[in-house]
């Protein structure tokens, strides 16, 4: 009965002749924090792009099983906005905020797919529109409080320090009300202090009922956060298991060749 919220089978992606990802299997269960690691160019971001509909994978299946309701949703061929609507949201490795919008507006954008008001409603400023806007603002603000950006709501996103930008990306994704959150290197460029706060934040988000799949190079963070870890190299899955299992797997050590895993 306990179906995984995300079930990926034999997912492949070719770019011309390059097999960026081949026949990857991956599962995320409800309430889990799962990490996807691997050397640079292993195909991790490509995996995210394939499951979120930004790339059209050349083979394989992506299925979402929302925790509420019993139906499964096959994601293949869905556009990115539809995928998000189904309940899986993501952040980007190379920050992609809406730079010329305020912090609050960035998060409000996340609520777009959970709200309805349209042109006529906006022009007439109907009661329903006002109520919806009010709700959007309040919910967005609460998310910003959660990630610790409540005192910067009216700043332009481009004026935020780097670590805050990464947290804003998470806030924006949370605003879409996902049950599964995909984080692409959320700690990249953060100092140890910020990383520690991020660790707490991710745990908090999980405790609120979200499942999390994260790509990360910071091994300390990965080892302390993850319930399970998948390791990729050259587009293939080379290992899977608990942090302890993975860090003692010879294949993993070989893949990282010299890069010591200081867990």
């Amino acid at each position: 009965m306990n179906r995984p919220v995300l079930q990926v089978t034999r997912l492949s992606m070719d770019f011309g002749g390059i097999h960026a990802m081949s026949e990857l299997d991956l599962e995320v269960h409800r309430g889990e924090i799962v990490a996807l690691i691997g050397p640079n160019g292993a195909g991790k971001t490509t995996f995210f792009n394939c499951v979120t509909g930004i790339y059209d994978p050349t083979g394989g299946d992506v299925v979402l099983n929302p925790p509420e309701g019993s139906h499964s949703i096959r994601l293949n061929g869905l556009k990115p906005n539809k995928v998000t609507e189904k309940g899986m949201a993501r952040t980007f490795q190379n920050i992609r905020l809406f730079q010329n919008m305020t912090v609050l507006e960035n998060v409000m954008i996340g609520r777009h797919c959970r709200t309805r008001s349209y042109i006529v409603g906006a022009i007439l400023n109907t009661r329903a529109t006002r109520r919806e806007e009010q709700e959007t603002v309040e919910k967005s603000y609460r998310i910003l409080e959660k990630v610790g950006l409540a005192d910067m709501v009216n700043e332009f996103a481009m004026n935020l320090p780097y670590g805050a930008q990464r947290r804003l990306e998470i806030a924006r994704a949370l605003a879409t009300e996902p049950f599964l959150l995909l984080l692409d290197e959320p700690a990249a460029g953060m100092n140890p202090n910020e990383t520690r706060e991020l660790n707490e934040l991710i745990n908090k988000i999980r405790d609120e009922g979200h499942s999390i799949l994260l790509i990360e190079h910071d091994m300390k963070l990965v080892m302390s956060l993850s319930d399970r870890i998948y390791v990729m190299d050259y587009g293939k899955r080379i290992s899977e298991g608990t942090p302890a299992q993975v860090s003692s797997d010879p294949a993993v050590i070989k893949a990282y060749l010299g890069e010591d895993i200081d867990a």
Partner: peptide
């Protein structure tokens, strides 16, 4: 009225970053 509305924000998001805009659930 439009520029500070749901649809106005979606337009600006589209201008700022098309991929992120879609990934945040906006129908391009």
């Amino acid at each position: 009225r439009l520029q500070d509305s749901r649809i106005g924000r979606a337009w600006i998001a589209l201008r700022e970053d098309e991929i992120a805009c879609q990934a945040m659930g906006i129908d391009k």
